[in-house]
């Protein structure tokens, strides 16, 4: 290790990961010892420059912002109006909830009832043992009845259960949209009554709306599955800065409140200042963003 290479490694000395041999050389060379000492002092100075940690909800906000950008862009293939909610297939929620087990304890007794009725064995037990033919007939009948019952149950579950799950999620989406409209109305009223109020977001805006009597706190909670866990954090709300042209009004096309990413399995609600609500499908976001050019 030479003096030149010690100076060459000044950045690593500052960062504290200089190659081995530097300290050995510095111990024997006064000039290099001063370089090492200076690097250590600089490290102390640089460490003093700290930055605030990111918000806890930075990722959620960014994802929400990306969805908003998708909505705001002219290439809005992924966005659907409220009136055009996706029909048919159940979303991921339906796939995540397992179907009830096909074999239920009750079925056996039902089969027995059916077969015994079919074979006329519903009364007292006959003292005469059944013949081979009777036994075979009973077995075949029982098997057929079991198959029939199994088919009926499976069909019933396959047809109706996803539909029920889908309906529940649609209901939640709809309720969420209603709440978002209420939030948008509250924000619009707040701006109308306080045209000089600065831009607000997050807890400050929630407090202003609730404490000012513009909105009941319960309406700030998404009715979706995550609403219970997130509470008032389940929506992201923003009061834009006053428009100099008309400070008492909000620009109609401006989003003022939206769902946290993942509130709903099927989509992502956003309400605009004029009360219009749209839903962006979660799974469509990445594909949409991926195909849109610069």
């Amino acid at each position: 290790m030479s003096c030149a290479s010690v100076r060459e490694h000044l950045p690593e000395l500052v960062r504290g990961d200089a190659p081995p041999g530097v300290s050995d050389h510095a111990a024997a060379c006064e000039a290099c010892a001063r370089v090492v000492e200076g690097a250590r002092a600089l490290r102390g100075d640089l460490d003093a420059w700290t930055v605030p940690p990111p918000r806890d909800d930075l990722v959620e906000r960014a994802l929400a912002g990306m969805a908003m950008a998708a909505l705001a862009s002219p290439e809005r293939g992924a966005a659907r109006p409220t009136t055009d909610l996706p029909p048919g297939a159940p979303g991921p929620l339906g796939e995540l909830i397992p179907f009830p087990a096909a074999a239920r304890p009750r079925r056996r007794s039902s089969v027995e009832i059916l077969t015994s009725a079919a074979l006329g064995g519903g009364g007292p037990v006959s003292p005469i043992p059944p013949t081979r033919g009777q036994l075979a007939l009973r077995l075949v009948t029982q098997a057929a009845a079991a198959l029939l019952l199994f088919g009926v149950c499976t069909t019933f579950v396959a047809v109706f259960y996803p539909a029920v799950v889908h309906a529940v999620e649609q209901r939640r989406l709809h309720d969420c949209q209603e709440r978002l409209r209420e939030v948008a109305r509250a924000i619009a009223r707040y701006r109308h009554e306080r045209p000089d109020a600065p831009a607000l977001r997050g807890p400050a805006l929630r407090a202003a709306l609730v404490e000012g009597g513009y909105l009941d706190a319960s309406r700030l909670v998404c009715p979706g599955p995550r609403g219970h866990d997130l509470g008032q954090n389940s929506f992201v709300a923003e009061l834009p800065a006053p428009d100099p042209a008309d400070p008492a009004r909000l620009p109609g096309g401006r989003p003022v409140c939206w769902d946290r990413f993942g509130n709903h399995a099927e989509g992502f609600n956003v309400v605009y200042a004029d009360g219009r609500v749209e839903v962006v499908p979660v799974e469509g976001l990445a594909r949409w963003m991926g195909r849109s050019g610069e």
Binding site: L58, A62, G65, M66, A69, M289, G290, S292, E294
Partner: peptide, 11 residues
């Protein structure tokens, strides 16, 4: 810019 960066990553 954190958001914008990941928009670019996605695109």
């Amino acid at each position: 810019l954190f958001q914008d960066t990941f928009v670019r990553v996605l695109r």
